[in-house]
Design a protein around this nucleic acid. Structure first.
Lengths: 341, 341
DNA sequence: GTGAAAGCGCTAACAT
DNA sequence: ATGTTAGCGCTTTCAC
């Protein structure tokens, strides 16, 4: 049979369709006997309830929208793809489908919303990464839950899953301090981004806690975007200004890779002359020489966490406002080493 | 009104729901007058037909499945994400939703299929990149159209959108020959992959057509995967064997990046001592020094092309078997130069 | 413990 | 040119 329906199952099992439905939902007021019988037929017929029919009566789509900007999605570092994979995995566990759509990074207030929002074809929305404020504002009258991952514009209003950026910044910086470094530079871009700002705050915390003096001259946050090229540029400005730097904490791996390029091009050996540590852990093994020390961000887990939250809200019909902090982890590879006097 | 239905529109417009439906479908046997009236109400109410209800009666989900392997999706080079974006864009144009799911690269014949296939929640399937044969074989009794992008295992059976790899290989190699190079090496990995094999075939064609002698010694196709590290290894073997190589054609950009790394590490200047050209055009600007010459693959366009094909097949209910070849383009940047004697 | 029946929002065949 | 109606496959209330 091409597409068995609940009727086919009922007929073959000599029960009513209501009974089949109850069995499918594992309702307790069904005798074990009928349950077994029906289940066997279901298996035999390879019956699966129609999502459309089910959605129609439940007034639920069974879909979750996943939104990020086009340039985040197309980024070289597979950061958001990992988050998506986590979400997709957990959606599967909870029997949801994911509808992935990108919005323009320069979304204007008059731009059309994703179709699945207009058609109410999603029960909830997961938004990954920084998205344009005009887009978020257009969502203000949405009636479904919205969860932010790795970004939170109005954290009083929405649930979110964030990286513990402050802790990460502290970990990275403390690691360098522990290794005996005194002149530890920070390079960052898009400093208004809450994540970047927090990584810098972590850096500052660690410096202060250690008794070292905070030197604004070796904090370079001029670039507007934390990418490779800008990492190169930041390193260039830094080393031209101050030759005594022995360690660099880069706000992310991408900028770190750029900075490493600058150092290599200018005879600064890593880690002999200068240590460097990144953030995110998105540089695949062997891609960079030496292997980059970094702060690992649990990308997949953040995706699953967001979806778990979503499933919970949907199942309990609650509109709670939860904020979960994903733990970070220091990963020491070859680009950082104990200073030798 | 929270969720206006066709009834709400009908009531407010003083027409039957059938009329509303006809207007929505722009049926011609509706007078302009009623049409305008109904359309105005639709606009005012912000009415959108329910995908579930529509799908139920049409016996169509309105969804297209997009499948690729997990490791392709998580790859550093945003190759498949571009293809996906193209598909998603075109799906939007044709009012389809895309359900993206990954399958394990080592999918076993007993593994469960993606849920949307079991639940018949897709009207068609787009498969991007090489996927495990066991997976494809499990699909053999599928009743919906399947289209392959950038891979085609049984090209007699399914429609596909492929890169013109032979042409690309010829373009790259001819470019080097035109620049006066005589010793042009080829590096590749996973040589059984049809795309890689064709790129090598293009290389051979160009060499032969030019009258140069084909030298198997400078063709390195030992690696099993065309990634960076393997590009490094291949270059190492090649240059240790033959110092006279003046140009390298890498089967893709990833291996080219690895090869460049080897050359840099060993004092081989690019392009002064050796030219190198890649394939795919996935290395973002400035990411690599010098900028990599390559063969551009129209990734987005391939995605849109696949979706166009799909929409066509679905709308005309045809099961045709079409093969479209996406055109490639030579991109000359800084890593290739005319040989100086 | 099980069945009958209403109805979710829509399309399409048929009636007018 | 427009309306009436059956039914898509399912969930759920209410009878039995």
């Amino acid at each position: 049979m091409a597409n068995p329906t609940i009727k086919d199952v009922a007929k073959m099992a000599n029960v009513s369709i209501a009974t089949v439905s109850l069995v499918v939902h594992n309702h307790r007021r069904i005798s074990q006997e009928t349950k077994d019988k029906v289940l066997a037929i279901i298996e035999k017929l390879n019956y699966h309830p129609s999502p459309n029919a089910r959605g129609l009566v439940r007034r639920k789509s069974g879909n979750i929208g996943f939104v990020l900007t086009d340039d985040h999605f197309l980024r070289t570092e597979p950061f958001y793809t990992h988050i998506f994979m986590g979400t997709e995995f957990e959606a599967h566990e909870n029997e949801f489908y994911i509808l992935l759509t990108t919005v323009a990074a320069k979304f204007k207030i008059t731009d059309p919303l994703p179709r699945f929002i207009l058609e109410r074809n999603v029960d909830g929305l997961i938004i990954a990464g920084k998205v344009p404020l005009p887009f978020i504002n257009r969502l203000s009258k949405a009636t479904f839950p919205i969860i932010f991952v790795d970004y939170s514009p109005y954290d009083k209003k929405y649930s979110c899953v964030l990286v513990d950026n402050i802790k990460g910044g502290e970990l990275a910086t403390s690691h360098l301090i522990e290794y005996g470094h005194k002149k530890i530079a920070f390079i960052g871009g898009d400093i208004e981004h809450p994540s970047i700002k927090d990584r810098l705050n972590g850096y500052k915390n660690a410096i202060e806690k250690s008794g070292l003096e905070l030197d604004e001259n070796i904090i370079d946050i001029k670039e507007d975007y934390p990418g490779r090229t800008n990492g190169y540029n930041a390193a260039e400005r830094l080393f031209k200004k101050d030759k005594a730097i022995t360690a660099v904490f880069s706000c992310n791996d991408a900028m770190a890779v750029g900075a490493i390029q600058y150092m290599k091009d200018n005879g600064i050996r890593i880690p002999e002359d200068c240590s460097i540590i990144g953030f995110d852990d998105v540089v695949s093994d062997n891609a960079i020489e030496p292997a980059l020390s970094t702060v690992r961000v649990p990308k997949m887990e953040m995706g699953t966490e967001a979806m778990k939250l979503m499933a919970h809200m949907l199942k309990n019909n609650t509109k709670e406002n939860k904020k979960v902090l994903a733990p970070v982890e220091l990963i020491i590879r070859e680009s950082t080493r104990r200073i030798c006097l």
